[in-house]
């Protein structure tokens, strides 16, 4: 693995200028460097933004937690101002060593993963190119790239109704996190630097997360279903992730039958799966986890 150019940004404007020149932002590197090692991301120049102090703060702002995008998951999990449910979910990501490098911004902006893509160079050459690597087909059988974003925290924060601050050359902008995640496999909104994540400080019993993961450490999650209950309303916010190109919110009535849940899972989970399980199983498991999440949230 050879990285030829890394520019260490001195300020946000400096970083923005480099992005404009085509540099790739580098913070913790835990998602990016394996792709460089495997040649999925080749010959790129990087702008390191992880040391910018503007991106490294954590503070409570009323009912919200404001977390800089370069805050590591390890640090966030130890923060006394961080809600218990978020500290717990941070601890579920990767391994202790990775969590000390991986950033919250990186977790939300993870690239899609696929069992045909995240492989060493000889393996991919032998397999042939796919949509993502200059080819004209998806080896998983899709009509387009169905690489799946495996972000646990992206799914959880989507359910929690988090917002993000984007810094662009035109200025700062606050948008809902869901704007980052399109409902299909198309390109998501990009551009600028994700500077801060604004997270509602929900009560611990108002958040429920159920996951499917092969091992208790290292592995990306195979399926995440997260739900939140908002006080004073009869609204449940359910999000599904890890088995989709991006996390997405799933409308679910306050009271619904198992059949409705199963239909909702069926509609949400694509027939093309690029992870380790077949679609029929993922749909089944999604319905199971949705039922468990709602059962935990309903009074």
């Amino acid at each position: 693995m050879t990285i030829h150019t890394v520019h260490i940004a001195r300020s946000l404007p400096d970083a923005l200028a480099r992005l404009d020149e085509g540099f790739v932002p580098l913070a913790g590197g835990t998602d990016l460097l394996p792709r460089v090692k495997h040649g999925v991301l080749a010959d790129a120049a990087f702008v390191a933004i992880g040391r910018l102090v503007e991106l490294r703060e954590i503070h409570r702002d009323g009912d919200s937690l404001r977390v800089g995008s370069a805050v590591t998951l390890g640090r966030l999990s130890r923060s006394s101002v961080c809600p218990q449910w978020l500290r717990r979910e941070c601890m579920e990501v990767a391994t202790p060593r990775v969590r000390e490098l991986a950033t919250l911004g990186g977790a939300l902006l993870q690239e899609g993963r696929c069992r045909f893509l995240n492989r060493p160079l000889h393996w991919r050459r032998s397999s042939g190119p796919c949509f993502r690597t200059g080819g004209t087909r998806c080896h998983a059988g899709g009509e387009r790239c169905w690489a799946q974003q495996r972000s646990l925290l992206g799914t959880v924060l989507l359910a929690a109704g988090a917002s993000i601050n984007l810094i662009t050359p035109a200025g700062a902008e606050t948008i809902a996190l869901r704007a980052l995640y399109p409902d299909d496999a198309g390109p998501c909104r990009r551009g600028g630097i994700l500077s801060e994540i604004l997270i509602p400080c929900l009560d611990d019993d108002a958040v429920a997360v159920e996951t499917l993961r092969r091992r208790g450490s290292i592995d990306f999650h195979d399926l995440v279903v997260a739900g939140t209950r908002h006080e004073g309303t009869r609204d449940l916010s359910i999000a599904i992730g890890a088995a989709l190109p991006y996390p997405r919110r799933v409308p679910l009535p306050w009271e619904c039958s198992d059949d409705v849940v199963a239909q909702s899972a069926e509609a949400a989970i694509p027939a093309v799966q690029t992870g380790r399980f077949e679609a029929s199983y993922v749909r089944h498991a999604t319905a199971v986890l949705m039922r468990r999440v709602t059962a935990r949230l309903l009074p």
């Binding site: 069992r115 393996w123 032998s126 397999s127 091992r215 208790g216 450490s217």
Partner: peptide, 18 residues
Amino acid sequence: TRGIMDPVGFTEYGIPTA
């Protein structure tokens, strides 16, 4: 997978962790 040994790395090969 597609005629190629799979997996070929420790990230994917499922050795039990602690």
